[in-house]
Every structure is written in C-alpha cells, then in structure tokens.
Design a protein around this nucleic acid. Structure first.
Lengths: 118, 118
DNA sequence: TAGTTATTTCGATGAATGTCTATACGGAGA
DNA sequence: TCTCCGTATAGACATTCATCGAAATAACTA
C-alpha cells in the first residue's frame, strides 16, 4: 500500500485512534521529518520559488558530505515528501504538496482549540 | 528555549528555510511522532471525548510492558504534545492542542491550491 | 506502621540511524 | 571510445533508540 494512500485514509489524530497499520505508515513519514538536516532540506525545497532545487544547491547549504545529503534526499523521496527528476547530469527535487497537506490535516487540532493570538 | 516557542516562531516549511536552531527544535517534536506506538498513544489521548486518559487505559490498548508505555508517554510529554497530572494514585494525560496546531501550521502546503495552474 | 496498587526510573541489549570514505553509475562532450 | 562532472550506492563505524525486567517512588488503605 502506498504511503500517500495510508495518509489519505488516516483520520485526524483528534478524531479517532489510529490502527496499527495506519500508525506504522504515518510514523514512517514523521520519522523522515524527525531529523534537523532533513527538515532544513525540505524547507529549502518547499520554499524555493521555482519549486525545484538541484542537488548541488542543497549540498552547498550544509557542511555535510555529498553522499550524506543524497541519503537524506532519498529518505524524503521514499516517504513521498519529495519527487526527483533527472535532466541531463543534474537531478532536481521538488515538493509533493499533497503529502504535506495530508500530514497537516492529520495534525489538525480539535475545533475547541483557541485561535492563534493576534 | 521552550519547544513551543520554537514552534511558534518557525515559519511554515513552504514559506522560507528553517535555520539550524528551529530545525533542531522542530525535529525533536517530529521525532517523537516518528514511532507507531507513540502515534497510536497520541491518537488515543487526542480522540478521547473527556480529554483525559489514565495510563492504565493506554497500557491496556497495547501488548507492551507498562514501563515501555510510560517511556513513550514521557517522550510525548517532553516535547509538549501531552501534559500530565497526578490525581490520587493515577496519572492522567491530556493533549496540548496548541502544540498540535503549531505543527499542523508548519506543514501547511503552499496556498492549498485548489486548482493546478495549467 | 505495614501492605497494596499505580507509575516511574534504572540498567541492559539488540536494532536502527546518521555520518563518513570509497566506489559505482549516468550523461555530456572531446 | 575515453574522460569529466554530478549524483547515487555500498560498507563501516559510532551513536541513538525501543524494549524489557527489576527496582524505586507515590499514594491510598487498613
């Protein structure tokens, strides 16, 4: 079963308890977000105006080896948060907004939650 | 710096890249969500009508040792997703909706575009 | 005060993870 | 074809993590 499907049929946490299968799938995605480097990579890709970044752009933003960055990009791709496309020698990564949206919906707080002040 | 403060001053991933400190704080919370058992625990607490669950209620829902459940509850409490209160012999956990809301906002997809521009 | 129940902390262990170096792959051009 | 450049994979290593059983703490009851 695809991860995005699992996200789509998982109710918000505040609605009803997740079953074991749903929890396992959702946890894989959150685990991918549970690393500072991956979060920064994701935010770099997600906030890029054109929607795409080259691997070399990401590598330049960290003092980590190129294979390490490649590893993190792979993790983000495997859970459906990023998609990759090769053009000539360069590989471009872009955000998959649907996955991000499903995650956001999953964490929607209960309706009784107070609004953000100001 | 409190974790909730870090969440509050971290822009949505699609707005601008996170700095190292923000990423470190946010990653701690997502890492806590990156375990299937903790996700299920959180959904049990969050979806409970009364808003509170006793530890024994949670323990009964899993085939894990009671100390293991206690450990997961502690992790969720440390990142500000749950709060605990002791009354008599029992400890009751409840959701902290503000933290959940900040996370949800952080993952808000770009413009929640209803239609894809051709 | 002792005894019972609920929960947390402690110490250990096997598995998973982030990072590195070295190497392989894939495409472009000479 | 060969070589260069950008990227991915493989293997190794140290660290972190989930889980357990045992022991400690907290609070009620007799």
């Amino acid at each position: 079963m695809e991860l995005l499907e699992i996200l789509e049929c998982s109710p918000p946490l505040t609605r009803e308890p997740l079953d074991a299968e749903q929890a396992a799938g959702v946890a894989r995605v959150f685990k991918a977000l549970g690393d500072p480097v991956r979060l920064r990579i994701l935010s770099i890709v997600a906030s890029r105006a054109g929607g795409e970044v080259c691997v070399c752009d990401v590598t330049g933003a960290f003092e980590l080896s190129q294979p390490t960055i490649s590893h993190h990009l792979k993790v983000l791709k495997e859970v459906g948060l990023l998609a990759a496309e090769r053009r000539a020698s360069w590989v471009y990564y872009r955000l998959v907004p649907e996955t991000l949206g499903e995650l956001s919906a999953l964490l929607t707080p209960p309706a009784t939650a107070p609004a953000v002040p100001q």
